[in-house]
Simulated scan of single mutants.
Amino acid sequence: MQQASDAISELDLNAYVDDQLDDWQRLRVEEYLSHQPDAAARVMQDLHLKRELRLCFARAPEPNSAQRAAGLSLSRALKRDERLRRVVRLVPVGALLLAGWLANEGLGPLSVGKVVASQPPHPVVAAAISAREASMIRLPMRSQPQIHELDRDELRASTGILLPRFDSNWSIRDAQVFPSPQGPGIEIVFDAGSLGRLNHFAVRSGDFAVTLPHVEQHGARNVAWFQIGETAHVLIAEHGDRDELLKIAEDLSSTLY
């Protein structure tokens, strides 16, 4: 009589792994494997690989109601934390704005009357205008070398001024350390697309303040400026409207936080 083990072929073992045998045939294969440890190990490895592949390609189960609620709660908490961080960053700015509003309305100890509403340019704006006028004289002069690359680390080490991250599409026409009443400032001239020639002037103002970006009209030019800490930044555009210049000033200021 032929032994059960002799009747089992490689095709039977493959069919066992692929679950293509009936119960009686599976019993015969399992009885054979109980006497053949090498074949049993190979079959177990094939079964393990088959299960791994099934799990890899299986669709992820749909989350239940409790999991959906937990995910929604986590998403709301993350958004709330982000809003809170933004508010905390703006607290010093809000305090300064409130103090300025109180002074302007005559409600605080530093109130300003209506008779002094017309003010000359802020000192850093006046310095920036002077730096721009000097750069406009320098640019056409062949005897005056121009700088087309910025060494931020060297400029910061020499002046203590941290420059913002400028638009990579702007081309640098010139960059110079410019003397001003506040001390050495950095005057950079860009070719800035639709804005035409754009001057950026940065200087340590001598006081600590946080001033949000805003635009002022000086002559025929729009001038945007802001201050973060001890450094004030002034932008003077050849072309472009107030909104475009204000947006650029806001973008630059955000790179300094």
Rank of each mutant, 00 (worst) to 15 (best):
A103S: 15
N104S: 15
L107F: 07
L107D: 07
G108I: 03
P109Q: 13
P109W: 15
L110M: 12
L110T: 10
L110A: 15
K114C: 14
K114I: 15
V115A: 14
A117S: 05
S118Y: 14
Q119G: 11
Q119C: 12
P123Q: 05
A126V: 05
A128M: 10
S130M: 12
S130H: 14
S130G: 13
S130V: 08
A131L: 01
A134I: 13
I137D: 15
R142D: 09
Q144E: 15
Q144I: 12
Q146K: 12
H148D: 04
H148S: 11
L150M: 07
L150C: 04
L150G: 07
L150T: 00
D151I: 03
D151C: 01
R152T: 08
D153H: 09
D153A: 13
E154H: 08
L155G: 00
R156P: 05
T159A: 07
G160N: 02
G160Y: 02
I161Q: 05
I161L: 07
R165S: 12
D167T: 04
D167A: 04
S168L: 12
N169M: 05
W170N: 03
W170L: 00
I172R: 01
I172V: 01
I172P: 03
I172N: 00
I172T: 00
R173A: 04
A175Y: 03
V177R: 02
V177G: 00
P179C: 05
G183D: 01
G185Y: 01
V189E: 03
F190S: 04
F190K: 00
D191M: 05
S194Q: 13
L195K: 06
G196E: 02
G196R: 00
R197I: 09
L198N: 01
F201K: 01
R204T: 06
G206F: 04
F208Y: 12
A209V: 11
V210E: 11
V210P: 02
L212W: 13
V215C: 02
Q217Y: 08
G219Q: 06
N222L: 06
N222C: 09
N222A: 10
V223P: 04
V223F: 08
A224S: 08
W225S: 08
Q227G: 04
G229Y: 04
